[in-house]
Simulated assay, not measured.
Amino acid sequence: MLTTATVRHHGHTDEPTAAHITNLWNAAYPTMRTIATARIDAYRRQLHDRVWDIDPTHPHADVLRAYTPTEPALRRRLKNTEELRRTLGQLDRGTHRACTQSPGGFNIHSAYTAVRALLNATGLNDHGLADIYRLAAALAEAAEERHRELAARTA
């Protein structure tokens, strides 16, 4: 579970913003993890069932082939979603490293990137998206504020 202290660890976020992001994160994280896990399970099922193998005698084989992902595409999606779920978990625990040179912690920009990637993978049947969209908005505002601070320093 994310804490305000974890969000503030790097010192770039004020207390009210950190508390707001923490509350939104803790409300949205279980849903984000559920969505990512459901996607991973679906990709694994598709790989197990070899969905790209379409009976050539099927009357709509050409249409089915046009809308069926290939094995490499499914493997890529599976890998990307597994990495996304891992990143979300690391952010939740405060152990995420944005790059190999950075210390572990919660990073506003990394969190915003991960939440946006998760939203790109959602569909109309996913529930609980309102909390995730609220979190994305708060992270976007915090990221914008940080960009303004950095721009003011260099000006």
Rank of each mutant, 00 (worst) to 15 (best):
T4H: 10
T6E: 04
V7F: 05
H9K: 15
H12E: 13
P16K: 00
A18M: 05
A18W: 03
A19E: 10
N23F: 03
N23V: 02
A27N: 07
P30A: 09
T31I: 12
R33Y: 14
I35A: 02
I35E: 01
A36N: 05
A36V: 05
T37S: 13
T37N: 14
R39Q: 06
I40L: 09
D41E: 11
A42T: 04
R44Q: 12
R45D: 08
R45P: 00
H48N: 14
H48R: 10
D49Y: 06
D49L: 08
R50P: 00
R50L: 01
V51E: 03
D53E: 13
I54P: 02
I54S: 05
I54K: 03
I54R: 01
P56F: 10
T57S: 15
P59E: 13
P59S: 09
P59N: 09
D62P: 00
D62W: 05
V63F: 14
V63K: 11
L64V: 08
L64T: 03
R65C: 05
R65T: 09
Y67K: 15
T68V: 08
P69V: 04
P69H: 06
T70A: 12
E71N: 01
P72I: 03
L74M: 11
R77C: 10
R77W: 09
N80L: 14
N80T: 13
N80W: 09
E82D: 13
L84T: 01
T87E: 06
L88W: 05
L88C: 05
G89V: 07
Q90N: 09
L91W: 03
D92I: 04
G94A: 09
T95P: 14
H96E: 15
H96D: 14
H96I: 15
R97I: 11
R97W: 10
A98R: 11
A98V: 14
A98L: 13
Q101T: 14
Q101D: 12
P103F: 09
P103W: 10
G104A: 13
G105I: 07
N107V: 06
N107T: 07
I108A: 01
Y112D: 03
T113S: 14
A114N: 01
A114G: 06
A114D: 02
V115T: 07
V115Y: 03
R116C: 12
L119V: 06
A121K: 00
A121C: 00
L124Y: 00
H127F: 09
H127A: 09
G128W: 01
G128K: 04
L129D: 01
L129M: 07
D131Q: 10
D131K: 01
D131M: 06
Y133L: 13
L135H: 07
A136E: 15
A136H: 10
L139G: 02
A140P: 00
A140C: 04
E141D: 15
E141C: 12
E141N: 15
A142W: 01
E145M: 07
E145I: 05
R146P: 00
H147V: 10
H147L: 11
L150Q: 10
A152E: 05
R153F: 09
A155C: 00
